[in-house]
Simulated assay, not measured.
Amino acid sequence: MQAPHTTPSPASSPPSPRRWHVDEIDYAGIDLARIQDQEDLFYLVASASFIETGSDMYTRNLVRHYADYPEVAHWLQQHWEPEELQHGLALRRYVEAVWPEFPWQEAFDAFFAEYGALCTDEELERDRTLELVARCVVETGTTTYYHTMRDLAAEPVLADLANRIRGDEVQHYKYFLQYFRKLQASQPAGPSRLHIARVLYQRLREIKDSDSDVALRHVWQHRPERFRQASFAQISQRSYRLVSSNLPITQVIRMLLKPVDLPRSLEKLLEPALQRLARRVLSA
């Protein structure tokens, strides 16, 4: 039986050393007239708040996976998890300030009941070096998601919040990449470029079919009355097209290619084709 998930109270913050604190966000200064009727941003912000708030379960899986690598396990518990939970808390506060009629806790509980069943150790790459490659793909996705949210936000407080989260996600990506390279260097017969490229492509294809789709569906099922006109299929297609068409695609490709460690001249040659492929995968 799935244990109940306890979310951080909107009145409290998870303790950890952080580059910024949720109490620095000027929620009282939100320009409601510029955001309340923005349906697309409601779905982007609310679904992101679910995924970030549920990250502690995924962290536990990763900590077990890297039990033989105490440095990685320690960083996951002491840095990555608290920062991800702060993201969830900060986004939740924003949602509740702008769309108070949205039953955040009820919707999150429904999301987590489904998400928790999907979030298993079996979802991780058996090769721990390749799982770090997979983490790089996830952090590429989150970095560029918040980059896009920041650029789409006409409301200054949301733009500021998205930019702060984006900065954290960049640092998370750098850590996973650094430790991937460290593990790779310690294994002369480690995964080949072909294996690395396979994981990159596979995880890129899974982005739409993973937790983001589950979160979006539960947000839609509990959506406010003002956003009741569109079907879930319409919202899903619109959300993914909005994000994919506004992605900083050059940044996406460069982040994805770093674990492959190709010569820069070859990267530049491949970039145009890879940009087209990434847009097609993410908007399909």
Rank of each mutant, 00 (worst) to 15 (best):
T6F: 15
T6W: 15
T7P: 07
S9G: 08
S9N: 13
S9C: 13
P10E: 04
A11K: 08
R19W: 15
V22P: 06
V22N: 09
D23S: 13
I30V: 13
I30D: 13
I30K: 10
D31Y: 15
R34S: 12
L41G: 09
A46V: 07
E52C: 04
E52D: 13
G54L: 01
S55Q: 08
R60W: 09
N61I: 12
N61K: 12
N61L: 13
Y66E: 05
D68N: 11
P70M: 03
V72F: 14
L76Q: 04
L76V: 12
Q77G: 09
Q78C: 03
E81Y: 08
E83F: 05
L85K: 06
G88E: 04
L89V: 13
L89K: 00
L91N: 00
R92E: 01
V95L: 00
W99Y: 02
E101Y: 01
E101W: 00
E101R: 02
P103Y: 01
W104S: 01
W104K: 00
Q105H: 06
E106A: 08
E106P: 00
A110G: 01
F111V: 01
G116S: 07
E122L: 04
D127F: 07
T129G: 08
E131C: 06
V138F: 12
G141K: 00
T142W: 01
T143K: 02
T144S: 03
Y146H: 09
Y146G: 03
H147C: 10
H147T: 07
T148G: 05
M149N: 09
M149Y: 11
D151G: 15
E155W: 08
L158Q: 09
L161V: 06
A162K: 01
D168K: 09
Q171Y: 14
L177V: 04
Y179N: 14
K182Y: 13
Q184A: 06
S186G: 09
Q187T: 14
Q187K: 13
P191Q: 03
P191S: 05
H195K: 15
I196F: 08
A197T: 11
V199G: 07
V199P: 04
L200W: 00
Y201S: 09
I207W: 04
K208Y: 05
D213P: 08
D213E: 10
V214Q: 02
Q221E: 13
P224F: 06
R226K: 14
F227S: 10
R228S: 15
A230E: 09
Q234G: 04
Q234H: 11
Q237P: 05
V243I: 14
Q251P: 03
Q251W: 07
M255V: 04
P259V: 05
V260I: 15
R264Y: 11
R264M: 08
A273F: 09
Q275A: 09
R276P: 03
R276F: 03
R280V: 04
V281W: 12
S283L: 09
S283G: 00
A284V: 14
